[in-house]
């Protein structure tokens, strides 16, 4: 392994902001993505690094006025163990449980998953499906970016070079259901072939769904929302006809690719079937 880049370890956000403003510097939290790059095998080393481990402002899970707030440095293990997450957003707990192995879950963070912006990031479809907001900060102040707008292109984020991800805010809506499903090559430590989160609000047996979100990973260059499938499901009840139409719409709008993990055809068909299954289970038919 080549020599480590110099590492800055600020203990206050203002110091971190100043270091970022002086850039270029690469933030590191759990390091589960960055450390792979540090072997120098997969591209150039970062020139300097910003260790986030002493920034307490990035920690913690809290409930604030109907919003679940997770610090950027919240690890997958903390999400899995968090009573608040388990009660209010079990789909996020489910997603965290599918990331890597236990060791990775102990180190890897929600903020890191967002910053890496992999199209296969396992928590990202949950954030998109729950209208999560990413709070970012810099010496210029804080701003809020909706998760759906945070991933403009392949492995790109809406972050300016001097900005840091601070926390994630997830509004908790009454009557909302969220489902998560990951399809990987094996049962643990697998990058997903398809990862999906679906959410909706139901208003009793006879009324249709509202606020439907269908979000997917590993089927495009970024995590995406599937507008066509959402349009079919919005206002509809979870009947066989609805499920068929939503699955057809999803298959029609997805443009996945062949890669080392799977094929475009498999991803398209399986995405449609998983959505169909979720609607079927919701409708209990």
């Amino acid at each position: 392994m080549p020599a480590e880049p110099p590492i800055e370890v600020p203990s206050r956000l203002s110091e971190a902001y100043a270091l970022l403003a002086a850039g270029p510097i690469v933030p590191i939290a759990g390091g589960t993505d960055i450390m792979v790059r540090i072997t120098g095998e997969l591209g150039p080393l970062p020139e300097r690094m910003l260790d986030l481990s002493r920034l307490d402002a990035l920690e913690g899970v809290a409930l604030e006025l109907g919003t679940l707030v997770l610090g950027a440095r919240t690890t997958y293990t903390e999400i899995r163990r968090s009573a608040l997450c388990r009660e209010h957003l079990p789909a996020l707990v489910g997603a965290a449980a599918t990331v890597g192995a236990v060791q990775i879950q102990n180190r890897g963070t929600l903020g890191g998953n967002i910053a890496t912006a992999s199209p296969a990031g396992d928590t990202l479809p949950v954030l998109l499906a729950t209208d999560a907001e990413i709070v970012v900060g810099s010496h210029r102040g804080e701003r809020i970016v909706p998760a759906v707008a945070f991933f403009p292109a392949y492995r790109r984020t809406a972050l300016a070079p001097d900005e840091l991800i601070l926390r994630v805010r997830i509004p908790l809506l009454t009557g909302r259901e969220v489902r998560f499903r990951k399809v990987g090559t094996r049962r643990a430590q697998a990058i997903s072939k398809v990862v999906m989160a679906v959410s909706w609000r139901s208003h009793g047996k006879t009324a249709g769904w509202s606020d439907v979100r269908v979000a997917l990973g590993s089927v495009a260059a970024t995590p995406i929302r599937a507008a066509g499938a959402e349009a079919v499901l919005e206002g509809a009840r979870p009947t066989p006809e609805t499920a068929d139409a939503a699955a057809e719409a999803l298959a029609a709008e997805l443009r996945p690719i062949d890669d080392v993990r799977s094929t475009a055809e498999y991803r398209r068909v399986v995405s449609a079937r998983i959505l169909h299954r979720i609607v079927r289970d919701a409708g209990s038919w």
Binding site: A243, D244, A247, E248, A251, V269, A272, R273, I274, H276
Partner: peptide, 9 residues
């Protein structure tokens, strides 16, 4: 029910 259609569960 099974085999289902290609896009159905």
């Amino acid at each position: 029910e099974v085999p289902a259609g290609r896009l159905r569960s």
